[in-house]
């Protein structure tokens, strides 16, 4: 078992959560550096569910201060993979 999470794993987690919220969106079609909210046409409640999903799958608390860091696909993937070492140790 690896101590860190690869970007691939992190991306799978993030994509899995988003699939529940915006099932018809193809993540390959969106700008990974752009904000998720307008691209996926999701509202603040959907975004909260997204954050909730990250917490559920990774144990990361994702405080409101960090919302900006998980606002894009790339940001969320980096956030999840970057935090996984401390979250798992």
């Amino acid at each position: 078992m690896t101590a860190t999470m690869s970007d691939t794993e992190a991306r799978a987690i993030v994509a899995g959560i988003l699939a529940d919220i915006a099932p018809e969106v193809d993540l390959d079609e969106i700008d990974p550096a752009g904000e998720l909210q307008p691209q996926l046409d999701i509202d603040s409640l959907d975004f909260l569910r997204f954050v909730e999903g990250i917490t559920k799958h990774t144990g990361l608390p994702v405080p409101e201060e960090d919302y900006r860091r998980v606002a894009s696909l790339d940001g969320a993937v980096a956030y999840v993979s970057g935090h996984s070492v401390s979250a798992r140790s």
Partner: peptide, 17 residues
């Protein structure tokens, strides 16, 4: 609201809405 949400997991946070 921000301070109320601070120590709560996302599932228990309250939105301005």
């Amino acid at each position: 609201l921000h301070s109320r949400n601070r120590d709560r997991p996302p599932a228990q946070r309250v939105l301005p809405a």
